[in-house]
Amino acid sequence: MTFRLDQLPKKKYVLPGNAACAGCGMMIGLRVLGMALGEEVVLIVPASCSSVVQGLAPKSSIAMPVLNVPFASAAAVATGISEAFKALGVRGHAVVWAGDGSTVDIGFAAVSGAAERNSDVIYVMYDNEAYMNTGIQRSGSTPKYAWTSTTPVGKREQKKDVALMLAVQGAPYVATANIAYPQDFYRKLKRAAEIPGFKFIHLYAPCPPGWRFDPAKTVEVARLAVETGVWILWEYDRGAFRLNPPSTIYRDRAKRRPLADYIKIQGRFAHLSDEEVRFIEEEVEAKWQRIAKFLE
C-alpha cells in the first residue's frame, strides 16, 4: 500500500477548538484513525481523555459517530454493534478507542472476552501510561520507576504487555503502533479493517502534562521510544509474527540509542539513579529477547 501525505483525506476528523491539552499525543493518533477509516467507523469510547475531548455536549470535536460507554464495557458494546451491523447488512467497523486504564485494568475481562468470541471489532488502545484524565494515577500500563500522583517515588511493578497477551490468546490480528510513525499506524488500521475477527492495536501516545515534558516534544519522545528500543513495533498477522520498520534494525542492541536520551527528556523519570537506568536498559533487552522467541 502506498502512503502519500498529499493523498490523505483533508477532511478534519478532529475539529479545532477541542478540549485536548496542547501537544496531545492521543489526538495525533485519532486524526490518523479518521484519515484511515473515518467514513466507515463507529467509535466506542469508554471513560478516558478522549471522552472529555469529544463529550462537551452540545458540541463534539470528533467528526465521526461516537458512543460513550461505561469504563469496563467498551469491548462488549463493540461486539453488540458489530453484530447489529451484520444483522442489518451495514458496511462499517466497530472501533473501540480506549485508553490504557480501561483496557489493561478495568476492562480487561471484556477485552479478553471479545477476543475469545472473536468478535468483529477493531480495538485501539492508546497508551499514555497512566490515568491521565483524572490526574495521572498509575495504571497497569505505567512503566516501572515512573512517577505518577499515586506512585510518588516511582512505580514498583512492571508494565503489562497487553498486546503480547492477546497475541498469545490467539486474536487474528495484533499490532503495536506509535504516533511518531503515522504511516505505519495507518497501514495497520487498513490491514485490521480487512481481517474478520478481533483486531487489537496498541498505540503509544505520549502525554506532555502526565509525563512532564514540553508539549512541543510529543513526537520526539515517541520517536525516541522506538529508537532506544523501549517501544517495539511489531505485528502478528494470523499466525505470522514480524517486526516492522524502523524497529527491525533495533533488534541489534548496538544500533539502539542510549536509553538516557529517552529518560532524561521526561520529568516522570527525573528521580532515577544511573543504576536504575541501567536496570531499565536490561529490562528493555529482556523484552526484546521475549519478542525474538516469537520471531523464530
Binding site: L15, P16, G17, N18, A19, A22, Q54, G55, L56, A57, P58, K59, S60, S61, I62, A63
Partner: peptide, 18 residues
C-alpha cells in the same frame, strides 16, 4: 436523546491558550 454534533470550538476559542 443527549446527542452532541460535531462543531468547531467545543471548548471555546483555544487560541487564547497560546
Amino acid at each position: 436523546l443527549p446527542l452532541a454534533s460535531p462543531a468547531l470550538a467545543s471548548a471555546g476559542v483555544t487560541g487564547t491558550w497560546r
